[in-house]
């Protein structure tokens, strides 16, 4: 089969495309030609679109993507819905790119930029890439939080082990065994036992 090319396909890359027809998209853009073209192209793609201007203070439930016009006369991006854990994917619609506007775009934590005038070509990719980016960032934040907790736990366990080794004159391994035994009998985690030991040690040291 030489001279015949085989394409290997990354099937996963299609996943973010699959639910485009189900997602709720909000357009915060003035009611003008650009706003209309943006809405029409989103409808061609098949998204469920609603448009408002000025932006709403509270988002309708299950809003996944927000197109937000950031303009010289609408620079305030201090929306409550941008500060939530579950923030939607934000795509900034801009017609200037002076530092004032760019700063507002950054502050709004936009995942993509849509420059005016609207061109139909490119909107689909922008939408999909921004959504994917948002999902990945949220996943990474979740992972990071877990890693931080884990790291803190490990630090605590080491500290608690040191306390036990000092108090009882036992080895590192025995100190850990002791804590694990306590955790099992009290049906809690080694991290919790470690925290209890550290706080008890603090109180005891204070009394000395």
């Amino acid at each position: 089969m030489e001279r015949v090319r085989r394409r290997s396909r990354v099937l996963d890359a299609q996943a973010p495309l699959k639910d485009l027809r189900d997602i709720k998209v909000l357009v915060f853009h003035p009611d003008n030609q650009d706003g209309l073209q943006l809405i029409q192209q989103l409808q061609r793609i098949g998204c469920q679109v609603q448009a408002f201007w000025p932006p709403l203070p509270v988002l309708p439930e299950r809003t996944e993507v927000v197109f937000l016009a950031i303009r010289p006369d609408a620079l305030d991006v201090n929306f409550e819905w941008l500060k939530t854990e579950d923030e939607p994917t934000l795509i900034a619609v801009v017609d200037f790119e002076n530092p004032t506007i760019v700063e507002a775009v950054i502050k709004a934590n936009a995942k993509a930029i849509l420059p005016l005038p609207i061109r139909t070509f490119g909107l689909l990719s922008t939408l999909v890439v921004a959504r994917e980016l948002n999902v990945r960032m949220k996943e990474q934040q979740k992972k990071l939080r877990k890693v931080e907790e884990k790291l803190l736990g490990v630090q605590r366990i080491t500290e608690a082990k040191n306390i036990l080794m000092r108090m009882h004159g036992i080895s590192d391994a025995d100190a850990y065994k002791l804590m694990r035994g306590q955790a099992m009998s009290k049906r809690t985690t080694v991290e919790d036992i470690a925290a209890a030991i550290i706080s008890a040690d603090g109180i005891l040291s204070f009394e000395k």
Binding site: M1, E2, R3, V4, R5, R6, R7, R9
Partner: peptide
């Protein structure tokens, strides 16, 4: 299979495809 041949493919290309 998912196989691609050049736009200017010759008969041999397709004989290979059919063999596959």
């Amino acid at each position: 299979a998912e196989v691609y041949v050049p736009l200017t493919a010759d008969f041999k290309h397709f004989q290979n495809v059919i063999r596959d």
